[in-house]
Design a protein around this nucleic acid. Sequence first.
DNA 1: CTGCATCCCGTGAGATACTG
DNA 2: CAGTATCTCACGGGATGCAG
Lengths: 135, 135
Amino acid sequence: MATRTAAERRAETAAAYDAFLAACPTRQLLDRIADKWVGLLLVALADGPCRYSELARRLASVSQKMLTQTLRRLERDGLVVRTVTPAVPVRVEYALTPLGQGLRPIMQAIKGWAEANMDEVVAARAAYDRRAAAS
Amino acid sequence: MATRTAAERRAETAAAYDAFLAACPTRQLLDRIADKWVGLLLVALADGPCRYSELARRLASVSQKMLTQTLRRLERDGLVVRTVTPAVPVRVEYALTPLGQGLRPIMQAIKGWAEANMDEVVAARAAYDRRAAAS
DNA sequence: CTGCATCCCGTGAGATACTG
DNA sequence: CAGTATCTCACGGGATGCAG
């Protein structure tokens, strides 16, 4: 059957686009690094391995749940390695893998742009809000 | 009063950290560009101004609500300009500002890393899941 | 010390219907 | 054509309590 409604065709296009997006490497990377705690964790681990409790202290406001969850995700993605030293009490250390290290230039680029341009963005926001308030 | 419980001190540290995070330019930029549709919109607008309906067509699966919402945010941040041509029917064009253009190298860097390394990440995930399944 | 399980709630995104 | 308004629902994330 060659005849489809316009709505059907649109739905197909959208489905194909969704599939494309789900597979898009850039989207996946963006989703990963934009996570609330990932960036902080990457920084915290940048200068060497770190214990769980030490990480909890550095990221002062992270909940245990989110810290563990984020670390697991990074471990699964091969960006971080988890090393357990059996002892009493247990000692667990996290460290960046070479792959995780490779993320640093990216984060640096983002940080650089942000520090150079975010004040302009903030100014734009203020101007926009002023116009909106004057309506 | 100089004496506070350990819990109080921790709460203060966390609050201060939260305030720091909220003000952090890098966090703000990350939150903005990691938005599901922002990256796509940036690409769609990269080669010149574009009408609302044209954008809707290019980002096949975006809802009107999200398209408008995302465009408003970008406009507010001074990354995009909205130009209304009064006519019947109305014609609205969106275009990148110079500030918005400046984001392209960042997005390129992210895209570059993703295309170069995400297959390794995917492999790491598969290996991790295999180990988990074998438990 | 390092974590997992559970409950709870706010935000955000989609669907749908209506307007200048 | 280019939106706005409202409803609903799922998911993320915090708090808390328990366990190896």
